[in-house]
């Protein structure tokens, strides 16, 4: 999965992006990329681009430019049991600032979205699939609980990509 060449990006950018974020070397933080792998294996409709954004930095805002819709799949701590997932519109949630003052090392999805909003380049429709992680240690493996939610999340995203309407949240 690679991003489009910068030249002619506005013309080449698929209208819908599915952007997975997370570090596959840090336990359940790799949930987003794992969902993306399932979507890639099953195939997606034309007009959809799958991008593994890895560890989001400010440049993540560029992935969202020239799109009509962005579906972002990411591990997120919302205080549920591991493997619980939620589908929300961006305007339904508040992304909390990092506990420490944001430095360059801490620029993530929240900062990229703030920058994208300031630049006026965010798509009108931003949907977040948030997966509650369990362990986030130094290991390239997902917990059983998170692994169990990958197929349902991938199926929900796939249904949405086919125009099947938003699914409800599950755990």
């Amino acid at each position: 999965m690679s991003s489009s060449s910068e030249s002619g990006l506005a013309l080449l950018a698929a209208p819908t992006i599915v952007l997975a974020l997370g570090n596959t070397q840090r336990g359940d933080d790799g949930a987003g990329p794992a969902v993306l792998e399932r979507l890639a294996a099953a195939g997606v409709p034309s007009g959809v681009e799958l991008i593994d954004g890895g560890l989001a930095g400010l440049e993540t805002a560029l992935h969202l430019q020239h799109r009509r819709r962005a579906i972002i799949v990411d591990a997120a701590d919302f205080g549920a049991t591991p493997g619980t997932w939620r589908r929300v519109q961006l305007d339904e949630v508040t992304l909390e600032p990092p506990a420490e003052a944001p430095g360059l090392h801490a620029a993530g999805l929240r900062e990229a979205l703030l920058l994208g909003e300031a630049l006026g380049i965010l798509p009108p429709d931003i949907i977040l699939y948030l997966i509650q992680p369990g362990p986030l240690g130094w290991e390239a493996a997902l917990s059983d609980e998170v692994r169990a939610c990958l197929d349902p999340v991938a199926a929900a995203v796939a249904t949405e990509l086919r125009g099947g309407g938003p699914p409800s949240a599950h755990s």
Partner: peptide, 21 residues
């Protein structure tokens, strides 16, 4: 940089474009 992005989006977009390259 975020207020700068509002005041001068072309400057910040250029920076992001170059950084991505």
């Amino acid at each position: 940089v975020v207020p700068l992005a509002k005041a001068a989006p072309d400057v910040v977009l250029r920076a992001l474009r170059m950084k991505k390259l």
